[in-house]
Nucleic acid binder design. Structure first.
Length: 566
RNA sequence: UGGGGAGUCGUCUAACGGCAAGACGGCAGACUCUGGAUCUGCUUUUAGGGGUUCGAAUCCUCUCUCCCCAGCCA
């Protein structure tokens, strides 16, 4: 895959140093800890590749752990989707599938321990009051009036919280740390809240649920994680992560933070992605325009391409915006090697080859993948009436256009040289078909007299081709940074109205009749397209455009501001 | 204005006191039965000031800019 000299990163350097110093007995154990409250996206892929990749590299293990401490947001369907996506990306946690919810009893016992040590207390302040008492960024907080309850009372109250004697929101368990800390996370953070709500795994067994800060480090500790890798926004939480582990005096992993991925022209926050789904800006989490792994998979992106991309963007602590062009480069690079080539005409223009015999059909040999001769050849039918791409003919072309125009000769790929002799229009002046002659001497696309043509067009035989729907995708957002919104503006303002274009009756070469859902092809001269796994059926195929080929001509068009409408 | 973090080509990442490098993008060109692929070349960088040093992106210092934190979310 990536033939680059592998470039290191600061986390790898830390691990190498730790192994050298025999910290953790030279072991490396990491974990990928998603909350099952949504679908995984390309940003998660960075974390997955990092955690699983580092573990593999250093002969360690990486666990998959669901951080399921909040029953109001979590669902089994997300667990299932996440499992599928991590597998698809190519990683294996073997038998180490864990759930924070499996540790609830242990967390509870540790909380009791902290209460007994006078390090935690039950607080009766309302959430609004807790907020008030917390102080501000610049002013210290005030201590809760319940802060100095006796250990006995705390123990009793906490037990009764668990038993369900109290209303939701009436009490919480808090760590007794420092209400004047400059770090807000240390101002007596909440460890447990009451939620009379069933949990998708523990059902009604619990009505108190641990907060992230309390649960996360403990889970890491239980699992023997050595390097707990998370994103930068948790940097402020590290002192608390350390504090809990230190108070309990249990095995203490180290938390390391890296910068999360930002991608141009896309949003990568669960909240925003959820909004796109809920408000129907897209057609579900697996809409091919979504940056979710499910969406990208449906779009035709390969795990190899995504992993290569993640490898190339590197890992650091500075916030950055990666150009989506790099992702597209990785996809093209991978698909160029893998995808069989076929001919498909998306916007058909009828061509009559006037000097070709009416009923003749020839089968011409076409190469499946010039990058990989071992992928063999196939035969493509040719006849008197064919379709070419409308864009491949221009009546009054600019000089840079070297496709078909009146009186010019071009090559039909793998077939013949043809020359345009007539343009047929309807009453409104629209071109309805063109007439060409072919040179029988050029069969296969070679001219015996060695004359050259400037271009080669793809085509399909009208009487043999099959029809299909093709969906073209563009960036979901027109703005490079849709997250960067002006005041009273929403990121949805930047949604690209042309992010989806549906072409209903595209003409495909007949070899595609049996194309399997999920299979990916290169439509020659156009791009990579995959058979949609959801809407495609036998006999009515639907293709998704994965990514276009590099397109010099469109650049020329853009530069010169030509009107594309011939 | 409290606490935490970050500043290297347009973008991403490397260089760990010793020639600022690679990739993507962009621009040119070569080649080509995909205006694809491939190949070649060019493009352009240490936020700023001061200091230490034979030598600083790297160490010290001051300044500037950007990001994160006031959920009983993770």
């Amino acid at each position: 895959m990536a033939n680059l000299p592998q470039t290191t990163n600061f986390i790898r350097d830390i691990i190498i140093e730790d192994i050298k110093n025999n910290k953790y007995n030279g072991k490396v154990i990491t974990r990928f800890p998603p909350e099952p409250n949504g679908y995984l996206h390309i940003g998660h892929a960075k974390s997955i590749c990092l955690n699983f990749g580092l573990a593999k590299e250093f002969n360690g293990k990486c666990n998959l752990r669901f951080d399921d401490t909040n029953p109001s947001k979590e669902e089994q369907k997300y667990v299932d989707a996440i499992i599928e996506d991590v597998k698809w990306l190519g990683f294996d946690w073997e038998d180490r599938l864990y759930y924070a919810s499996d540790y609830f009893e242990q967390f509870y016992n540790w909380a009791v321990e902290l209460i007994k040590a006078g390090k935690a207390y039950v607080c009766d302040l309302s959430s609004e009051e807790i907020k008030e008492y917390r102080g501000t960024l610049t002013e210290p907080g005030k201590e809760s009036p319940y802060r100095n309850r006796s250990i006995e009372e705390n123990l009793d109250l906490f037990e009764r919280m668990r038993k369900g004697e109290f209303k939701e929101g009436s009490r919480v368990l808090r760590a007794k740390i420092d209400m004047s800390s400059g770090n807000l996370n240390m101002r007596d953070p909440v460890m447990y809240r009451i939620k009379h709500e069933p949990h998708y795994r523990t059902g009604n067994k619990w009505c108190i649920y641990p907060m992230y800060d309390w649960a996360h480090g403990l889970s890491d500790s239980i699992e023997g994680v050595t390097h707990s890798i998370c994103t930068m926004e948790y940097e402020d939480h590290r002192p608390l992560y350390d504090w809990f582990l230190d108070q309990l005096n249990i095995y203490h992993p180290q938390q390391i933070e890296f910068a999360r991925l930002n991608l141009s022209h896309t949003v990568l926050s669960k909240r925003k992605l959820l909004k796109l789904v809920n408000e129907k800006y897209v057609d579900g989490w697996d809409d091919p325009r979504m940056p979710t792994l499910a969406g990208m998979r449906r779009r035709g992106y390969t795990p190899e391409a995504i992993r290569d991309f993640i490898e190339r963007i590197g890992v650091g602590k500075k916030e950055s915006l990666v150009d989506i062009a790099l992702l597209e480069y990785c996809v093209r690079k991978d698909l160029n090697e893998k995808a069989p080539r076929v001919m498909a005409v998306l916007n058909p223009l009828k061509v009559v080859i006037t000097n070709y015999p009416d009923d003749k059909v020839e089968y011409l040999q076409a190469i499946n993948n010039p990058e990989k001769p071992e992928m063999g050849v196939r035969e493509v039918p040719f006849s008197k009436i064919i379709y070419i791409e409308r864009d491949d003919f221009m009546e009054n072309p600019p000089k840079e256009f070297y496709r078909l125009t009146l009186n010019r000769e071009v090559r039909l790929r793998y077939a013949y040289y043809i020359k345009c002799i007539d343009v047929i229009k309807d009453g409104a002046g629209n071109i309805v078909e063109i007439h060409c002659t072919y040179d029988p001497e050029t069969r296969g696309g070679w001219s015996p007299d060695g004359r050259k043509v400037k271009s080669t067009l793809h085509w399909v035989s009208a009487s043999h081709c099959i029809e299909a729907e093709v969906r073209l995708y563009d960036y979901l957002f027109t703005k490079e940074r849709p997250d960067e919104t002006e005041e009273d503006e929403d990121f949805t303002n930047y949604i690209n109205p042309k992010s989806l274009e549906i072409l209903k009756s595209c003409k495909l070469e007949p070899s595609l009749a049996n194309a399997k859902p999920g299979s990916i092809y290169q439509f020659e001269r156009l791009g990579y397209f995959c058979v949609d796994t959801k809407d495609s059926k036998d006999g009515s195929l639907v293709f998704n455009k994965t990514v276009g080929l590099k397109d010099e001509w469109s650049k020329i068009l853009k530069k010169s501001n030509f009107n594309i409408s011939s």
